[in-house]
Design a protein around this nucleic acid. Structure first.
Lengths: 203, 203
DNA sequence: GCGGGAATTGACCATTTGGTCAGGATCACG
DNA sequence: CGTGATCCTGACCAAATGGTCAATTCCCGC
């Protein structure tokens, strides 16, 4: 097993360059649309050298996908069952939107993957993801039962947050085409979503 | 120019079979992930025969994309500026959700395309789409000015409708993984979205 | 500064794939 | 039925691509 510490400086640098280049490529073209040559060029390496660090194109893709779900779900994990319901949901929305803004490539990689049937993510989705959501949905249900937020379907509330926040990363070209220049999509989205969830959840 | 009427029965049938098979494939794997052979097999034809009907793989893809935007935007076009604001928005949401349910492949094809930079759709997006949205945003702004719905950013209101409805088609595997069996995602989504937009727009 | 493992590469290979083409089968129609 | 146009196919090609490998260069600890 190659541990993180056991890697030389060159290893670390080149592996990182490859993963970064690959994230660019895969998120913008999908798995099949990418060639190892492109990744190599973008990383400033030769093709055989890329294959010296990763066994195959698949392996690069997998390395990228591993851990992606963790990053993606972190904000949901951070939702505090003991906090103020309305504040917790709004905080989640804001964090998720910030994630779309700071990690649009990851968002698109994820979208590409799910869109195309989630081959590699499939099992993880049904286990980890479903479990986490079930847990959070239960928390939200409790808040509703206590009359602290308005009644809504907790699952679809979560879906709505995913859809609304990821939309700005995944459909960025469309958003920009529609808004035209001179707009800050994320700033406007922040205000809009804040208002939306305030009104939706107000008792 | 080959007009619709000038096509023989065989032409019509085979072109249709090819487009249908290609829609399956492209929506599920993206442009690069599809081979002409796969399309041919799915359509029950040989590869050269497919190329007898379409000049290239690109041509099939383009044929699919042409007209897609029209289908996609039809419900927005149907929004009646003279109607009741709240009813018009809710009707739009319902139609768009119904479209996701009845045409998930088209939704995913569109998502794939936009996600990957909208190469072919790009120009159309900036012209037709931007113009239509600008027009509808103006209508919504008027409704707000008249105090007939609550104040919201019209552009982001429209984005939210796209995001929330298309999510159920584009991320279907995720939605199903989270909900588990025994759920009717679209029925639940219909109720949820109805409530969401009622609360958002209530004066 | 040197020895050995790590890093890198040019050349190469097999397979896949988009696309062509010449000819054969089939159909519509007089 | 016959004939011309439409429809279809097997065989083929060139380019692209994932991946291999032997040989070479580089780097780091001694």
């Amino acid at each position: 097993m190659t541990t993180e510490a056991s890697r030389s400086r060159i290893q670390t640098r080149n592996r990182q360059a490859i993963l970064d280049a690959a994230l660019d490529e895969f998120s913008a073209r999908g798995f099949a649309g990418v060639t190892i040559d492109r990744i190599a060029a973008a990383a400033g390496l030769s093709k055989p050298n890329v294959l010296y660090y990763f066994a195959s194109k698949q392996a690069i893709h997998r390395a990228l996908l591993d851990g992606l779900l963790d990053l993606w779900l972190a904000p949901l994990r951070e939702m505090d069952p003991g906090g103020d319901p309305q504040h917790e949901v709004l905080a989640y929305v804001r964090k998720k939107l910030a994630l779309s803004q700071s990690h649009p490539r990851e968002s698109r990689l994820f979208a590409n993957e799910v869109l195309q049937g989630a081959g590699h993510l499939g099992p993880v989705l049904q286990e980890d993801l479903a479990a986490l959501v079930a847990d959070r949905a239960a928390v939200i249900s409790r808040w509703i039962a206590q009359g602290r937020i308005a009644p809504v379907d907790p699952h679809h509330l979560i879906f709505s947050i995913w859809a609304l926040t990821q939309h700005y990363a995944d459909f960025e070209v469309q958003v920009r085409a529609v808004l035209g220049p001179g707009h800050d999509p994320y700033a406007e989205a922040g205000a809009f979503l804040d208002m939306l969830y305030r009104r939706l959840l107000a008792v």
